[in-house]
Structure formats: C-alpha cells, structure tokens
Design a protein around this nucleic acid. Structure first.
Length: 420
RNA sequence: GUGGCUGUAGCUCAGGGGUAGAGCCCCGGUUUGUGGUUCCGGUUGUCGCGGGUUCAAAUCCCGUCAGCCACCCCA
C-alpha cells in the first residue's frame, strides 16, 4: 500500500478556498497600510538563532524551529519580524528620511503545540513607525489597526482597542521605591494579575513593598497617569475613534522590551481574544542594530482574525463575497460543434486580451455537461460557439437570458452584460 | 509539559458482541444544441493501528498513534 503523507503537525495546506480567504485578509492589510502611507518590505525567512536570543534570551530557543545548517551554523525559521526589522533599519539608518512607515506581510514559524488560533506556521501583518518619538505615532498605529478592523467589517459591537502605558507603570513603581532591578518582575506580576489568585498577587507585591490596593488605585486612575496616553486619546478622539478605545492600565503585555504606550485589539464577543497587539520599543533597534532609533509597531496574525471573521456576520459576508470572486470566472465557453475548436480558441484569446477571466473545455462533451461545468466554475456568462459561427449565443447564467451576437462585436457585448 | 473529547465510505455522521449503513459528493443514463431544484442506476471501506478477552470484536479491555479542545506559554 502506498505511503500516505500528511502535513507536518501544525502546518497548513491552503486549498483554493482557504487560499482565497487568506488573500482577502492580506488584501485588506495591504490596502489599509498603504492608505496610511506605509511602504512594504520583507526580510529573510531564515535567520541566525542568535538574533532571537539577543532579543528574547535563551528560553526562546524552545519555541523556535531551529537547526544546524550544512555549514554548521545555528539557524532558525523566523518566529517574528521585529528583530529583522531592527537590523534592517539600523543597517541603512542614514539612507532613509525619518520617520519610516513600514509594513510587511510574511510567514512565521514557532515550535508550539497546535490549537485553535495557533499553529506552527502562520502569517503576520507587521506595521512599524521608526525614528519618531511623538505619541502621535503611537496614535497613528492604533488608528490604523482600528481602520483595519472596520475595513474587515467589524463594528464597535465587536472589538475594542485597549491602551496602556508601561512608562506610567515604571514611574509608579519608582515612586513607590521599587528598585530598577525589580521593575521587570513587578511588571510581570501586574501582567499576570488577572489570572493569578489575589492572595498570591498580594504576597508577590508585598515582597516589593507594595499592596494590591496601591495597584488597583493606580489602574483606576486611567489616562491621568500618563501624559502620553492623554495625547494619544485626544488624537484618536479627534479622528472620531473614541468609541473604539478603552484605557486599561492592567494591560502591560508580557514583553520586556516595550518602553511606552502599549495596546491590544480585543474581541469583545464570546472569544475575548487578543487579535493584535503592539507598542513602543525605543531601545530595541539600539540593542539589535547598535543605532539608537525610537520605534513603535504592532502585529496581527492571520489565524485568530480569520476565525473571528468567520464567527461574525458582517465580516463573514464580506469574506464570502471575496471568496466567490476568487473562485469564479467571467466567461465559460460552450463548444456546441467540435469542428469549431479553432474558432473557439480565437474567441477565448480575444476575450482574455480584453482582461476577462475565460475558460473553455479541453475535451468534447455534451452541451448540458458544458453548461453544468460553466455553472460550477462560477462563470457569469456562457458563450455558445457552434455551426452558426460567426454568430454566437451569449447566455447570462444567473437569469438564463440569452442573446445572439456577431463575433466582431463580442467584446463590447460581453463587457455590457458583465457590468449590468 | 498537563488534562478532556473524538477516530466507521472522498465529506458529514449513524450503528454498539454474530464478519457494515444513511445523506452529500462523484460517475452513467433519462435528454444526439442549453445547467443549477426531476427520476433511475452505479463505484467507494483491512470500522486509526497493535495486542488481549470470546466460538465470534467495528462493538468489551489494554496500549499506541492521530486529530480537536482547554490549561501552561504566547515575541
């Protein structure tokens, strides 16, 4: 018996329907990024493992698809784009006028257990502004992420953007006498507060000389705690985006490298999932590339957002329209008389040169079968080529109306029928 | 890494000790130049794999593998 192959665990086949859905999401990502004046870039899929160690420490290696290449170099399939971006931006720092507005759509790999919304292979949209310290750059990214969601068909009933500021936490902790060396630990405690029993949190805070009510009081102070956040908020409000925004200081995001405003796009339906996240990371380009450059950015993965689209009525309708278009053609040729193969080929070429999507049968078949094939191919029109050539029959499959047209006037007639 | 659920036709699934079923899909005909919603007929399975109990296992037991889901983690 032949050996049966499957995809590797956590890897994905994209059959045409899934590929259409993926490309639809890509199209929206790209369209909105361009609307904000961002330009697309790309980096290598394989990088030295040290690039990721440098950013995230040795623990990261357990989550990497890494191996020794034939030159015995320690390499990894990229798990994220930010270190690559930092390297690229630093390498040609002087060639680009600041600020840089860069986006990328790429494939990433993490050695994790496969589950809903998470695989070992996924696509991610990355959007970053480099060389700009103003909080208005942070606001621009947040606005972009909101517009992305709106373009996908989501409304304020579906999502919120939750914003916070790590700087505000650092100031708070410093005022309370937490030493510099303990600040990372402190932020970890805050980050995990929602999922940790109160007693445990009290105990951990106690070790740092703090109490839970100190923390709760600070979270309650909201935007008052951060001048940067106030600026971000008033800017988003001026754009008419206030209804999408929620200040929530309890969002810290696990990453150690964030240095200012941080935010998450959050599904407020049943899932309560984070679908995108990002923030300011002013030190990272210096750490990776040796050139100090302020930066902020965010990323959105394809898996969670696609799940959410399918679960939400309006976004799913938009996706289905895109899928139907991707899987269809404009014209399917019906060859009623096999002697007219050659004439049919000429017609096909004429229509294709006018930009239409056209298919024709490869083998002779009954008329009925050919119409069935046209229907199943998602064609809008069927053109019957038979003994009457150069007279042709053009049939609209949707309402089954048909008309006859001379081949010399075909392109115009077809264009008219397709646009009506 | 931990736990739960599920593995039966290409797909969705039913059956629950006596060597397999439905619907969909697919193919052919009904219809020798007109399709989607007619009707008729047809193909398809080592019932995930290995072992055990039994006269007899798809069915019960043990193991294993795979998939899904949740936890941990999440750049």
């Amino acid at each position: 018996m032949a050996q049966r192959f499957q995809t590797l665990k956590g890897f994905r086949d994209f059959f045409p329907a899934e590929c259409a859905a993926r490309n639809y999401v890509f199209d929206v990502w790209r369209r909105i990024a361009r609307r904000y004046g961002f330009v697309e870039y790309e980096g290598p899929i394989l990088e030295p493992t040290d690039l990721y160690r440098k950013k995230s420490g040795d623990e990261i290696v357990g989550q990497l698809f890494c191996f020794q290449d034939k030159g015995d170099r320690d390499v990894s399939m990229r798990p994220e784009l930010t270190p690559t971006l930092a390297r690229m931006a630093a390498a040609k720092e002087r060639e680009f006028k600041k600020p840089l507005r860069w986006f990328s759509i790429g494939q990433f790999f993490r050695y994790e257990k496969h589950q809903k919304g998470r695989g070992r292979e996924f696509y991610q949209f990355n959007c970053d502004i480099l060389g700009e310290t103003s909080p208005l750059a942070d606001a621009e990214l947040m606005a972009l992420s909101i517009d992305l969601m709106r373009e996908l068909g989501f409304t304020k009933e579906d999502f919120r953007i939750r914003v916070s500021d790590r700087n505000a936490w650092v100031s708070f902790a410093t005022d309370k006498g937490v030493s510099d060396g303990q600040i990372t630990d402190f932020l970890q405690i805050v980050d995990k507060m929602e999922r940790t029993p109160k007693e445990k949190t009290e105990e951990l805070l106690g070790n740092l000389g703090l109490t839970l009510s100190d923390i709760e009081g600070f979270i309650a102070s909201g935007a008052e705690a951060s001048p940067a956040l106030k600026e971000v908020l008033s800017n988003l409000e001026a754009r008419g985006f206030a209804e999408y925004v929620e200040v929530d200081l309890s969002i810290v995001r696990g990453l150690a490298y964030y240095t200012g405003a941080v935010f998450e796009i959050f599904d407020i339906g049943k899932g309560m999932r984070a679908v995108a996240g990002g923030g300011r990371y002013d030190q990272l380009v210096g750490l990776i590339g040796g050139v100090d450059m302020a930066a902020c950015g965010f990323a959105m993965g394809d898996m969670v957002i696609t799940d959410l689209i399918r679960e939400t009525e309006r976004p799913n309708q938009l996706l289905e329209v895109a899928e139907a278009f991707a899987s269809g053609v404009d014209v399917s040729i019906v060859i009623a008389d096999p002697e007219k193969q050659g004439e049919a080929a000429g017609v096909v070429q004429q229509l294709r040169e006018s930009g239409l999507r056209v298919i024709a049968p490869f083998s002779p078949a009954k008329i009925g079968k050919q119409f069935q094939a046209a229907e199943q191919a998602g064609a809008k029109l069927a053109i019957v080529i038979g003994g009457e050539y150069p007279e042709l029959t053009v049939k609209r499959l949707e309402d089954r109306t048909e008309s006859t047209v001379d081949v010399s006037g075909l392109s115009e007639a077809v264009a008219g029928l397709l646009s009506s």
